[in-house]
Amino acid sequence: MNDFISSVLPAVLFVGAVGLICALLLVIAAKFMSVKTDERVTKIRECLPGANCGACGFTGCDGYADALVNIPGTKTNLCIPGSDTVSKKISGLLGVQFEDVAEQVAVVHCNGDCRNTRKKHDYVGIQTCTAVKLFYGGDGLCTYGCLGYGDCARVCPNNAICLKDGIARVNFEKCIGCGLCAKTCPNHVIHMTPDTVEVVVTCSNEDPGAVARKKCTNACIGCKKCEKSCPEGAIEVRDNLSHIDYSKCSGCGTCAQVCPTGAIKAASLLGFHNQAN
């Protein structure tokens, strides 16, 4: 027993002492050499949502708060999850003009759920979209659509995405517009869209009409009915897929009515973020 103590004790004491000295050193350094941060940085940081999503383009909420105070000219409306409420608070703290935030929500451009399309093979590998995408472009018939393994749902900081009938669905009330899902989706099916839009193309398939139709009953077949019927000329069919220019769209909903497959749908994104204010 004594042998054991005499052999272990020096090591325990020494490592303990080193740890203690290091800790003391850091405590003293933090106490006496700390740099005073601008009070406004702390206050702004408290206003920000703290999701650290990076939608503002800075390295998290701390980075944005720091930039707002220390880099003149940084806009106060960059925090999309915080929307107008946060923008107003920050503008008030900094004493600058309030600017409206362009709120965005994530929109899944695919409606190929289990009723509209089928699987082409069984997949038993790693259950992520990125992995299944490596096997012949995914296990669904359509290689453009939602893969349905929920990579987006896993990155969502606010649990706004759920998988329903085999594809991702966004709960627009919960979506904070950070865009992490859009960056994660290996098929780029999710796009960040202004939450004021009234119609959405729920398909990403660029196959020619007949091929697309065989794969999914919801697919955009590139028939150009929407393009012709749109009174504002806001719709263009490129690569057999309808694209809506939201800067021209008036939200009349004609395209959704004429679409033979239902690929264009009237959307109720409802400007949830704006309503909340």
Partner: peptide
């Protein structure tokens, strides 16, 4: 107690880098 080398070195280096960062910041 040379066998404690790895643990002690990690401890010392980690603390040192943090300390250097504080000093540089100031």
């Amino acid at each position: 107690i040379e066998y404690m080398q790895t643990i002690v070195f990690i401890l010392v280096i980690a603390a040192l880098v943090q300390f250097v960062e504080i000093v540089l910041k100031k």
